[in-house]
Amino acid sequence: MGLLAGAAVLCATGVAMAEPTTGRPVFDQVSNMFQPVSVPAAKIRDLALLVLAICGGIFVVVGGLIAYTLIRFRARPGDEHREPPQVYGSSNIEAAWTIVPVIIVVVLFLATARTINELELKEPPESALQVTVVGHRWWWEFQYPEYGIVTANELHVPASTPDAPRPTFLWLESVDVAHSFWVPRLAGKTDVIPNRRNTLWLETAQPGLYLGQCAEYCGTQHAHMLLRVYVHTPEDFARWVEEQKAPEAEVASVAAGRDLFQRTACINCHAASGTVADGTFGPSLSHLMSRETIGAGVAMNTPDNLRAWIRDPQTMKPGVRMPDMKLADHEVDAIVDYLVTLR
């Protein structure tokens, strides 16, 4: 009953919201695992459909039997003083309903075993883009050792085309507690655990933005540890890499803000290219304005939101590790003016 209602709702929402709308969507995307855009997610979907079909079949048969039994063998008026024949059991039917499930289980197991070993790639292929993902409370750090880029919360990867296959291979690490990397339309989740290096790969031909978030409870702001994965065409990706590698333009008009930034405790936690700031406790601010969101997805990256964030991060994201810096209004403005030049 609940299942039916839910199925109807699922269909409705799936139809209405499944495809990314045009323009650059913000949060409006359903991360439906049955609409995969990446090889591992598609393989999982195929297996999942098989499992769903088998389980659905079993449910119909067993549920039907229960319903039939209840209707057919209900006590009827006049039965009060009659007992039915007393049957102890039947070795045949019991054996049958032991063996049939075993056969089903073995079939399922074989397909599962193959898919596990297909998807659990331990070594990255030659052509792969390798990214190190570091889980922090409560944001994501992405390092591209190949390019010397470090960014946060928004992962950019190239699409893989048939003539130039380029899967993305993620090394998952954590500096504090356990997290989990999960973008349902790209791949299944893999935990991000301190003192351990896990791997995850994805390979997609479809450019776009795919949403996900941390899936392992990691403390206060577990809910606001969102993941945004941008898949670009190879050309767009190359352009993005170039932009990220380029030094920040030094804008003279915001020298005051940059100065203030370098004199406050900001630099203990944040890094920003072209300044003395090289902290690693918080997200790198280099090319900050190339990101669409701040605070691991709590708000859009607009100057207003930045201002509100710097003034009091604890209001926007209660419990976040960034303290209220007690800056005066004009100081906040100066820093925001500086930050918006980091493109």
């Binding site: 003083h81 039915p84 024949p85 007393q86 045949n92």
Partner: peptide, 23 residues
């Protein structure tokens, strides 16, 4: 109790055997 118990056709004792009789 006065309840009657329905009996089976199989076997000599009436009821409660495990079925079927020959496997």
């Amino acid at each position: 109790v006065p309840e009657t118990v329905d009996h089976l056709e199989l076997g000599e004792g009436g009821h409660r055997m495990r079925l079927p009789t020959h496997v």
